[in-house]
Simulated assay, not measured.
Amino acid sequence: MTLKAVIDSQSELPLLSVQDLKIRIQMDNGEMRAVDGVDFDIKKGKTLGLVGESGCGKSLTSRAIISINPKECETSGKIVYHSTSEKELHELNLLSLDTKGKQIRSIRGRKIAMIFQEPMTAFSPMYTIGNQIMESILIHRTKDKKEAKKIALEMLSKVGISDEVKRFDQYPHEFSGGMRQRAMISMALSCNPELLIADEPTTALDVTIQAQVMELMKGLQKEFGMAILLVTHDLGIIAEMCDEVAVMYLGKIVEQSTVGEIFKNPKHPYTKGLLNSMPKLAGNRNKRLESIEGTVPMPIDMPPMCGFYDRCKDRIEGVCNKQAVPKTRISDNHMVRCFLYTKEGEERTYV
């Protein structure tokens, strides 16, 4: 069977499938369930948004994909990656690989690349930007330094950095925030990855530069045909960039669907709260934006209950605080984790 036939026969498979991902951290006062049973698929060439407040487990989830979480993190579950070689399609559980082994290192940076939240700390201040971009190319693409430099210069130019020959020999502190982010994108894309993980890629940037970076990522995704996992707390970026969205709270996916469905027909009270906190062009200027009272609790030795219970205006006493919340399938492509949509919750609500 030819490679094309193999790919066609597996066309329904996601590029990456995260299954029952759990991350535990042992603290002095108990066990922290930082990520607690997360499931999602990333389709080839598509963008999945992972959204939620700080402390929900988004970054730990994304970093677990390429096995770069701190050693204190005890990780279980499956992260299944469908990789296409020259002759066949491989199915790999990335969590089963040695975190420092040759196999995961051949995937990390080459097949799956990552844009980190703060490029100033992601780049080493001791080496030039060009040297650091070249390092990845020399590891994964070619051993020829002249060819590696040529690729690096092409990528710097492609992401919109002018006078790339001069910039190649400059250090990170000589770049502005927007330029550092562009350089980080060029380094991530220098090996033509199948999946790009973007962890809060616009947090440290002003609004104008944010828009430029988003447009850049969309253009490069179209050119290279890669999938993107976009980690953010900004629903405006989610609406602009993503095909699907997973709303994360306290280590769990509480709602997941297409972007259009989430924005038009949100189900979970947390999702509704996030959407209501956004300013609207057609809204009443004199009306204050809604806010979600309270903060994300620490998930240490929590009893089986809804993690959003203390902050939820629609909570059901005697239900939401007494048992773990099951997943409910609203439609084929819409999942929510809330008792309001279970039989028991409906009985308590309407009786």
Rank of each mutant, 00 (worst) to 15 (best):
Q26E: 14
N321I: 01
L60Q: 05
G160M: 06
M305I: 03
G109D: 00
Q19I: 14
E164S: 14
S9V: 00
H268Q: 09
T2H: 07
V35A: 03
N265C: 04
M302K: 14
R315H: 01
N284D: 15
N333E: 15
R182S: 08
Q212A: 03
E346G: 05
E194Q: 13
F116M: 09
N131A: 12
M248K: 03
K78N: 15
K264E: 14
L95Y: 08
I129Q: 12
K143C: 04
A5T: 07
L281Y: 00
Q221A: 13
I151K: 05
Y81G: 11
S277T: 09
I66N: 05
T258K: 04
Y171A: 13
L230N: 10
R24E: 15
G219L: 14
D301Q: 10
V254M: 03
K158H: 08
K267L: 11
F339K: 02
K87L: 13
C73R: 09
T232M: 01
T295H: 00
E118P: 00
T128N: 13
G45N: 02
N93K: 05
I209W: 07
T75N: 04
L289N: 07
I330T: 12
E261D: 14
Q210S: 05
K322D: 00
H82S: 10
R348N: 06
V245S: 00
K146Q: 14
L156R: 07
L230T: 13
I161N: 07
L250M: 09
G45Q: 01
R337C: 12
G130R: 14
P304H: 09
E91Q: 15
E147A: 10
K280Q: 10
N29I: 12
C306Y: 05
K78G: 02
D243G: 08
Y127E: 12
R141W: 01
I112T: 08
M335H: 11
S106H: 04
